[in-house]
């Protein structure tokens, strides 16, 4: 892997497979009676979060701590950032503190890329605007591979607010790189303008796609990003694009239901579906720690030279 993890779009198939294989080894660590490794002792990982995200930040924190790295949580609220400090000044501050890796979440697409040009350490994109969220896609692929044995050849359907979803973007690039065929399903207003140039099928009819899907990934309707009238009412959205019990019954026997969380039960996914045996929601959280351990190990575990 190169020095940073900024997107899945430029992640090669080989690099992605190395992350997944390494994550598989990391998952075994959770089975040992002592779940802590000395691997990154003396390394410092900074969680630099300009957006609230308890689950992603905690996941990175747990991953870094299991590898014995020192973790510093730097959140924008209550820090010098709220006093008007620029991203560059923040970066230089972190640099001076000797951060070996910066895990960055930012509301602006591309912020981690800029950050990577300013700091000497590795930058991990933990979600930037509506652009990418690479570790989420990696943990989704990891979950599919653990449950279904492969990613190559799977039919994956991503449903919901694709327009605002960095999870969808990262998954589209990663899953197609790994050989899956991806279909996105959303109301036309919630698809990005350039979707025709993506390597995906586009559908507006969830019922037609479900029986052919090995995996269906439900996205949260991001109320905080709903600046315009993208659909008439939540009820109508839920009726046409929500995964209720009747719809879930049309899925093939082996099919998985995934959700990156946080879920809005009753909106994009029915409670009974979210808690069913085919739902991987809780597994995804556990797998997230393994995948983030793998990413941190691959970025910080060696001398820094590409081997």
């Amino acid at each position: 892997m190169k020095g940073h993890l900024l997107s899945t779009e430029d992640l090669s198939r080989d690099d992605a497979l190395v992350v997944l294989d390494t994550a598989e080894r990391m998952a075994r660590v959770a089975e040992a009676s002592v779940r802590k490794l000395p691997t990154l002792r003396g390394r410092t990982v900074v969680n630099l979060f300009f957006e609230d995200s308890t689950r992603t930040r905690t996941s990175f924190e747990v991953a870094a701590k299991r590898l014995s790295a020192d973790v510093i949580n730097f959140s924008a609220r209550g820090s010098s950032v709220s006093k008007g400090e620029s991203l560059k000044d923040t970066a230089q501050t972190l640099e001076a503190m000797g951060a070996d890796a910066v895990v960055c979440r930012h509301p602006a697409s591309g912020a981690p890329h800029r950050l990577a040009t300013w700091v000497r350490g590795s930058v991990v994109n933990a979600g930037d605007g509506t652009h990418e969220h690479p570790t989420q896609a990696l943990l989704d692929a990891f979950t599919m591979r653990r449950r279904l044995g492969r990613v190559d050849g799977l039919a994956v359907t991503i449903v919901g607010d694709v327009l605002h979803s960095r999870v969808a973007r990262s998954n589209v690039w990663l899953l197609t790189t790994l050989g899956a065929s991806v279909t996105v399903v959303a109301p036309p207003t919630l698809l990005p303008l350039g979707v025709s140039s993506w390597p995906v099928e586009v559908s507006y009819d969830l019922d037609a796609v479900l029986p052919k899907s090995d995996v269906v990934m439900m996205l949260r309707v991001q109320r905080e990003r709903m600046s315009a009238a993208f659909f008439p009412t939540e009820r109508e959205y839920s009726r046409r694009y929500g995964l209720d019990v009747d719809r879930a019954a049309t899925l093939p026997e082996h099919a998985l239901v995934m959700h990156p969380g946080p879920m809005v039960r009753g909106m994009e996914i029915a409670s009974a579906v979210a808690d069913s045996a085919r739902s991987t929601v809780v597994e995804q959280v556990a797998n997230g720690v393994s995948v983030r351990m793998a990413v941190l190990y691959l970025l910080l575990g060696g001398s820094g030279e590409v081997s």
């Binding site: 080894r25 990391m26 490794l37 691997t39 590898l67 190990y297 060696g302 001398s303 030279e305 081997s307």
Partner: peptide, 19 residues
Amino acid sequence: MYRDDLRLRGVRPLEVTEI
């Protein structure tokens, strides 16, 4: 992951642990 020379060279691939 318990080696003392990890920083002396590039990242080593992990192997299987099977107790």
